[in-house]
Amino acid sequence: MIPPADTIDYHTQSPEVSKRFAELKQRPVVLSVDDLTKIFPSRNGDVTALKSVDFEVYRREFMCVIGPSGCGKSTLIRILAGLETETAGAVLLDGNPVAGPGPDRGMVFQSYTLFPWLTVKQNVMFGPKMAGHKEAGVEADARQWIELVGLSQFENSYPHQLSGGMKQRVAIARALANRPRILLMDEPFGALDAQTRAQMQSYLLQIWKNLDITILFITHDLDEAIYLSDRILVLKANPGEVDEIIEVPVPRPRSLDQFIEPEFIATKHRINQLIHPESERGQDTLPFPRMTKQGDDVE
């Protein structure tokens, strides 16, 4: 039962929530995206994937990016990670422009990217070793990160022996071991089943809460976005533009019970409106003729 959208406004924030946002905006800006544009040249004319995307992420903020498919979410995060180059605009990390991939921005991918030839521990040690740190220190450090994601007893296992959820937990530990300023997550739980996904979301919130880490999280799951984030960046497709930045009015700490709170539902309703605008409604009914007898109804 979703209450009508106009009864509760997603803008309405309880005093604690507004206080939180006021405090949040006092914190230093970790990531600043300035008028970012990405154009993919192609034979049939240029495709603008991102157009003048502009936003800021504050220290220890949890921000989600959501949008319809093809809105350039992945392009955005790949530019932030340095895996793609922007056509125009700039990405600043702590005020310094970003050029190319680097260990200051950890990334967790949707596909499993653990190195299959390394054990869990060796995977977590990968980043620090690339930076040339001493083996002994790195190993002790890696053990702590593995413990943090609750996989101590698997530290000598190979990735192929782990379940999907475990692999992503190792991927998170591996990214964190580099002590990045920001953790970029590109639909990291997209390939997991619903139960594992819920568990992973809860783990992630616990990790975020206890570490000095800022998270930018891409998803196409509305519940996931609201459950996890402080603010949600909603992107529009063709071209990818910032539609709205929503301050999630659901108080913290979050729990699964909040899914039926009015603030939660109002926010979800709003995002739904943005992602599937009025003009597109009705497109989801098929022009399907009746193929059963009159009276033989299921609803």
Binding site: A81, G82, L83, G100, P101, G102, P103, R105, G106, M107, F109, S111, T113, F115, P116, W117, F126, G127, M130, A131, A171, R174, A175, N178, L184
Partner: peptide, 25 residues
């Protein structure tokens, strides 16, 4: 390809990509 990208986000240099990711991979 994602393995190479992951390694880059973990701070692997071009030379390290070849010796620590491509070759063992």
């Amino acid at each position: 390809m994602p393995l190479l990208e992951a390694a880059q986000t973990l701070g692997a240099s071009q030379h390290q990509l070849l010796s620590k990711v491509v070759v063992p991979g």
